[in-house]
Design a protein around this nucleic acid. Structure first.
Lengths: 346, 346
DNA sequence: AGTTAGCACTCGATGAAGATGAGTGCTAAC
DNA sequence: GTTAGCACTCATCTTCATCGAGTGCTAACT
């Protein structure tokens, strides 16, 4: 059996309707609602074919049909057309990025908020990753006996700090000296190079403090790793307004997953190299997400993809709109960060 | 009418039962379940009295009774007895605090997680406040044209950073000079003093940069304010398992509020001066919380109360357990932070 | 007096029976 | 190949009766 233009047309109509109403759509609805010029009986036959081909499913005999994951896949790949954002949406978004300079964390948070507000689904935003960043400043601040705070600032203005143990009796002046030396040696080095092992030559200069230095690096690495996994979640409760989650148990299943930062991180990580990814239903790794779709996109600083963000919604998500929103927010976010942090690279 | 010992006893039995079952409790249940030695008829009379006095409510004529907010108030004030944590709970908690030194943010996050896991309600934790903290280190790091990052570290090892504008053409060496001067002048000053206006004498020394300095302070203040309002939320989805939220709309009402960080902050702020607060139902400022109870407690660094945390649950919350858990977690958290950051003050 | 047994009554919850209607598949005619 | 017509399916809604937990009241008991 072949998927001709007419079947395609009918499938599109069904998907469009289902995205809107969330209830199984019957042949008569399609016959009437569109200018397709076919009777319900004909459409019925076509729908029967589409079901056989795996694009439609029937909840029970006397219900209409709903699109399968396969249908959505076809839809996003070949059928749907990009949609435009409304004037209101555009101004809502730009409004939220026109504020004064803030901290990167705030912008990340803001982005999550805007994304979930405009899409009315759940959104998540991963912080900019740092391993390609370069070190601009490093400093050790003594804190009482045996402890110090390690501060670093990257060239793009992101900071990390990490509490470390230092040898007892070490003076602040000694910390100063080490800080200066670290700055001299490490400035403008990429963080992942530093992590790797470019420390050997420095260790020599420090003499007795070589072991201490290792602990600094290790601690820094752990801290970076930890922080990089922080995901900002927003609008999870939007999902409760959708009919598919009118049953509390369903809602609990999906929302509980979203409460786990790890799970969100897994959905977002390692997707910096593609502009968009769309995972529909069973295409998600997590089986608890098999009734959801997850769309991710990337943002950049300068021309370097530096982070990802995503939307979680039902498989009958309004893909055209979500993609339009994410494209626009991705650009806006990238511009904002680039202007804010890194005018040279632009 | 008087609230004699017997009425009290009956009320306690009703509350205990209702906390457990969440369904209206009738006179027979009480007569049988306790060793109170009274017939259901007698208890019925007493219950009728208790209702008249405002301690009980009847959802409809032929249902049992449920405790009113007033009853819970009496219960937490006079009736209930502290409960003990189980061995498992204690070890679960200490396990999560025995990890290596981390960052304060992580500990806050961890606390929220532990608190919601043990209570099975929603928990929230406010970050340590900084205005009573003293400045240990301040530094300006230049970032490309016209921008710099302001870093501060408090005596307890907490950091804040804030992106600021600097006059165009200002050199890194100039920033160094200002940083040194700021350090010399401001070290060991309380942050709120700095915010207030102890800057006048410094402004003089800076000459032409006086206006610039003002913007630094202003930006720092805003950054502190912002960050101080961050509330870590955890376990919100636990509420979905409770029968009172088996209706999605109810659940949405309450969970949507919790998604707003501001709202949580309002519940937690300004409660550092009392060990515990308990707000039952209508006692909460937010009307959307009128079916919930919010319990807050404080934690300290050294002997200084420095932050608050709380639990949100239904009014039929298991108060004895929640208080026991919060007491224990508060102590553990205080110890952890104190050991970690601030051995002198201990 | 206070307590209790007994009883009529209330009212939500449960469930069965029937009606409704959206939707299908199939057949036969166009 | 398309469509009208029709019998059939099945979730959903409505109605109605039943059930039972729980009440308030009264009268008897201690």
């Amino acid at each position: 059996m072949e998927l001709d233009a007419r079947k395609m047309r009918i499938l599109q109509a069904i998907i469009d309707d289902y995205i809107l109403t969330a209830s199984p759509v019957g042949s008569r609805t399609i016959a009437k609602s569109t200018d397709i010029g076919l009777s319900s009986a004909t459409i019925r036959n076509e729908m029967s074919d589409l079901e056989e081909m795996g694009f439609l499913e029937q909840p029970h005999t006397s219900a209409g049909r709903i699109p399968s994951d396969k249908a959505y896949r076809l839809y996003v790949d070949s059928i749907m057309r990009r949609s435009q954002l409304s004037r209101d949406e555009l101004s809502f978004i730009s409004e939220h990025y026109s504020k004064k300079l803030g901290e990167v964390d705030d912008i990340v948070k803001q982005t999550a908020f805007v994304l979930s507000s405009v899409t009315r689904y759940a959104s998540m935003v991963l912080s900019p990753r740092l391993h390609t960043a370069r070190l601009r400043y490093i400093h050790l601040v003594g804190l009482g006996e045996g402890k110090a705070l390690l501060l670093i600032v990257t060239d793009s203005g992101l900071t990390r700090d990490s509490l470390i143990r230092i040898p007892y009796g070490m003076e602040q002046s000694e910390l100063e000296r080490i800080s200066l030396m670290l700055n001299a040696k490490l400035s403008d080095c990429r963080l992942d190079d530093i992590m790797a092992s470019r420390m050997d030559d420095i260790a020599g200069e420090l003499g007795e403090h070589a072991r201490f230095l290792n602990s600094i690096i290790k601690s820094l690495g752990e801290s970076l790793e930890q922080k990089a996994k922080r995901v900002e979640l927003s609008g999870a409760m939007n999902l409760l307004s959708l009919p598919e989650y009118s049953d509390v148990d369903r809602a609990k299943d999906i929302l509980s997953v979203m409460e786990k930062g790890d799970a969100l991180y897994e959905m977002l990580k390692g997707r910096e190299d593609v502009e968009f990814t769309i995972k529909i239903g069973h295409e998600n790794e997590l089986s608890s997400m098999k009734d959801c779709s997850v769309v991710t996109a990337t943002y950049k600083i300068g021309s370097e993809p530096i982070g990802t963000f995503g939307v979680i919604g039902p498989t009958r998500m309004n893909y055209p709109k979500v993609l339009a929103v994410m494209g626009h927010i991705g650009r806006t976010l990238s511009e904002t960060l680039t202007n804010m942090l890194d005018e040279e690279r632009k």
